[in-house]
Design a protein around this nucleic acid. Structure first.
Length: 114
DNA sequence: AGAGTGACATATT
DNA sequence: CAATATGCCACTC
């Protein structure tokens, strides 16, 4: 596979009702500073039939990132988040309140098997 | 092999 | 607030 498999592993850990930012995921995945790769990785995900909670990843401004390539799925993302109880305030969520904090201790990383 | 692109982030103007 | 600039790197011609 690709380096993205690990990104997906991290995203899968985000619980319902919480969100994470691209940069945050990148860092947890051992890709600090490479947030763009996270966005690219999620773009590859099959939104309809994937076990990855892709909608819980938003940008550092607390907003849903949109792009012409998404063809309206950005609204779909917001919808899913609201279903989980996340409240948007002026097109933005309060990261201080909803940001996911990963489990403490060691984290699975490619360089750190077991 | 080189250039362009992008679900980003941060800093600056 | 919005527009730029720069760093980042896998992917696609």
């Amino acid at each position: 596979m690709t380096v993205y498999s690990h990104i997906y592993d991290i995203v899968r850990l985000i619980p319902s009702g919480r969100v994470a930012t691209y940069g945050q995921i990148a860092e947890l995945a051992g890709l600090a500073g490479k947030a763009r790769l996270v966005g690219y990785a999620l773009y590859q995900v099959d939104m309809a039939s994937s076990d990855i909670p892709w909608h819980r990843v938003i940008n550092a401004q607390g907003k849903v990132s949109h792009s012409p390539l998404r063809r309206g799925t950005d609204h779909w993302q917001r919808s899913l988040l609201e279903q989980e109880g996340i409240v948007f305030h002026e097109d933005r969520v309060d990261l201080a309140h909803y940001r996911w904090h990963p489990p403490l201790g060691r984290f699975p990383s490619p360089e750190d098997p077991r």
